[in-house]
């Protein structure tokens, strides 16, 4: 095994081009477990900790450019207003020690369906900025996940940042685990209201081979909200609409039975989380509307 220590992003890209099998390590919270337990013996380990830029974020007009290595702790402490869904998801990641090291780049690189960041990124809308010596590109989050622990990266590419749309409405994230802390998701659900475009987006974790959106549920809800004039009138979403949304979210799962839970439970739990997160975000949306109207 060789240990590569690129001092800059350019050096990292060059090293990755030269050694496409090199495994990038930042927080180490996935890679080191595999090494400690003898599940993986990469030829090259490439430390990204020296590249300071990867741990920085910028809040822009439309979106936040989040460096791949920005630790979850920093996200939950500093980006709650801009990225509320991701901040909530970050708070559910493992333990404080892990949140101090791990970042979204690792979640994306590993592309495990159980990664906590994915549902929030899918719901918020995001693009993954990847680069190789051949050039940079942005991969829409919907096209990023390709299979169980497979993503859209080419062998010579590295994840530099993720561009997440700034929240234009309430967002929520829920995760079921069989413990109250330090737990891998049995399944997870992210939901974002986008009042600007009058759309709702979702993200489901650990209930299909890849993180997925519940597109049929989104379409149904978008139509129902539009039809009932809910975005304008801010009425309470009728229980039958919420229920159908939840059922459609369940239906968009394609889960398996494993030691963490049954497929049947996952489908059920995603439905419950969908209904609850919709209620919470919609209540919050109505609250903001009332406040705004009251002030006007």
């Amino acid at each position: 095994m060789d240990f590569l220590r690129p001092a800059s992003w350019e050096e990292a890209l060059a090293a990755k081009a030269e050694h496409p099998t090199a495994v990038p390590i930042a927080g180490g919270t996935d890679v080191m477990v595999e090494i400690n337990f003898d599940h993986r013996r990469p030829e090259y380990l490439m430390d990204l900790n020296r590249i300071g830029d990867l741990s920085e974020w910028e809040v822009g007009e439309e979106s936040v450019r989040l460096g791949a290595s920005v630790p979850y702790t920093a996200i939950m402490e500093n980006l709650r207003a801009e990225l509320p869904g991701l901040a909530l998801a970050s708070h559910t990641v493992a333990s404080p020690q892990i949140r101090n090291r791990g970042g979204v780049g690792g979640n994306l690189g590993t592309a495990s369906p159980a990664g906590d960041a994915h549902p929030a990124l899918l719901a918020a809308g995001a693009e993954v900025e990847v680069e190789s010596v051949r050039g940079a590109r942005r991969i829409p989050i919907d096209e990023f996940y390709k299979g169980v622990k497979r993503n859209a990266l080419a062998p010579d590419e590295l994840i530099r940042a993720v561009h997440v749309k700034k929240a234009d409405g309430p967002q929520q994230f829920s995760k079921v685990g069989t413990r109250n802390a330090m737990v891998i998701a049995v399944c997870a659900f992210g939901l974002a209201l986008h009042p600007a475009t009058r759309t709702v987006r979702t993200g489901i974790g650990s209930a299909a081979p890849t993180p997925v959106r519940a597109k049929a549920a989104e379409e149904f809800l978008n139509a129902a909200l539009e039809e009932g004039g809910f975005w304008e009138n801010g009425k309470i979403i009728t229980p039958s609409v919420a229920k159908q949304f939840a059922d459609l979210c369940s239906a968009s799962c394609n889960p398996i039975d494993d030691v963490r839970g049954t497929a049947s439970y996952r489908r059920h739990a995603v439905g419950v989380m969908a209904r609850r997160t919709l209620t919470w975000t919609w209540e919050s949306y109505r609250g903001t509307r009332r406040t705004t109207e009251g002030a006007a």
Binding site: V176, T178, D257, G261, T262, A263, S264, Y265, R267, A269
Partner: peptide
Amino acid sequence: VRPEHLTGTSLSDA
């Protein structure tokens, strides 16, 4: 007791 035992989802639906 696991969550599936409390929610009637302990059997696989696969």
